[in-house]
């Protein structure tokens, strides 16, 4: 599959601070790519370099097969972006804002503008918002409008920085559904987030950024693949140990980790021996565990020199 977004050795240095330290990203057509990292790990700087807002200190960016920022004028109209939260002119209505933004660059014909604006407003759930100025919008409504602005030209690639910020649980579910729908119809999604749960539910591949370095990049399914063990929830962990001698890997209260990747087999042995079982599950690491193992302490934690844990 072709690379829709590709970086090699991308780095950005602000004075003595290295914000992004040589990252190689590779997002293929059809991916929902989760770009994970703690606050301050360099996610936003990377997104800004992708879109040509910040000039890399070194390294290259290719979007849709063309070099950025040289090809910005050809490429960016085919990319929808949400960068560090939405921003609009508060005294204008949502549709007026979208209209001005659409008219400000190439690739959005005037003829279809009104139609496209009405369509995306419906899509993001702001169809009935009418002429209210953006100043009077709630945080969630602004977020929806920002997403609408990104969708205005049916982009092939969506670069979204924290797209569910400020949305309530219903809104988050709704937007997740919208993004998955768009992905099914061929839109590649690059999702930058520090919300592990969000990435876990949406993405097919992930890259984890830690202090400017990409410490992990893999298929999500591979990262959270079964470990070959089964988790048994039981009130009698000692009896499990007695029945499955030698296969018990760890006991944590009523939670027993047993070697063997088939819960049914484990269950049959325990039930046959009369051990009460409340629950059984295939053991797989959560994305959270994977990320915490790969990344170090939070980047916005500032320890005194020599006293870092």
């Amino acid at each position: 599959m072709s690379a829709v977004l590709h970086t090699s050795g991308l780095a950005k240095r602000y004075g003595r601070v290295v914000a992004v330290d040589g990252i190689d990203l590779d997002v293929r057509a059809g991916d929902v790519y989760g770009f994970l990292g703690a606050n301050g790990s360099g996610k936003t700087t990377t997104v800004r370099m992708l879109l040509g807002l910040v000039t890399p200190t070194r390294g290259e960016v290719e979007l849709l097969g063309e070099r950025m920022p040289r090809a910005a004028r050809r490429v960016l109209p085919r990319v929808g972006a949400l960068i560090e939260g939405p921003a609009f002119h508060g005294h204008l209505s949502g549709p007026a804002n979208l209209s001005l933004l659409d008219a400000a660059g190439p690739g959005g014909t005037r003829r279809t503008r009104r139609r496209r604006i009405a369509d995306v407003l419906d899509q993001v759930g702001l169809g009935g918002v009418a002429r209210r100025p953006v100043r009077a919008y709630s945080l969630g409504m602004r977020q929806r409008l920002g997403l609408g602005a990104a969708l205005l030209r049916r982009p092939e690639l969506l670069v979204l920085d924290e797209p569910t910020n400020g949305l309530d649980p219903q809104g988050i579910t709704e937007i997740r559904g919208l993004l998955l729908d768009l992905n099914r119809t061929g839109t590649t999604v690059f999702l930058s987030s520090h919300l592990l749960a969000e990435v876990e539910q949406l993405c097919t591949r992930v890259g984890v950024l830690d202090r400017g370095r990409l410490v992990l990049r893999d298929e999500l399914a591979g990262l959270t693949a079964p470990t070959g063990a089964t988790v048994v929830d039981t009130p009698a962990p000692e009896r499990v140990r007695a029945v499955l001698d030698g296969r018990v890997l760890s006991v944590d209260g009523g939670r027993v980790l047993v070697r063997g990747e088939d819960p049914a087999e484990v269950n049959a042995r325990l039930v046959a021996a009369g051990v009460p079982v409340f629950g059984l599950a295939v053991d797989r690491p959560s994305l959270e565990q994977v990320v915490l193992a790969a990344a170090r302490t939070s980047a916005d934690r500032v320890d005194a020199p020599g006293r870092r844990r």
Binding site: L51, A72, P77, H89, A104, G105, P106
Partner: peptide, 13 residues
Amino acid sequence: AGTLRYLLARPAG
């Protein structure tokens, strides 16, 4: 206002 980044990513040039 934050609208500059959206203008430039639009891209306005």
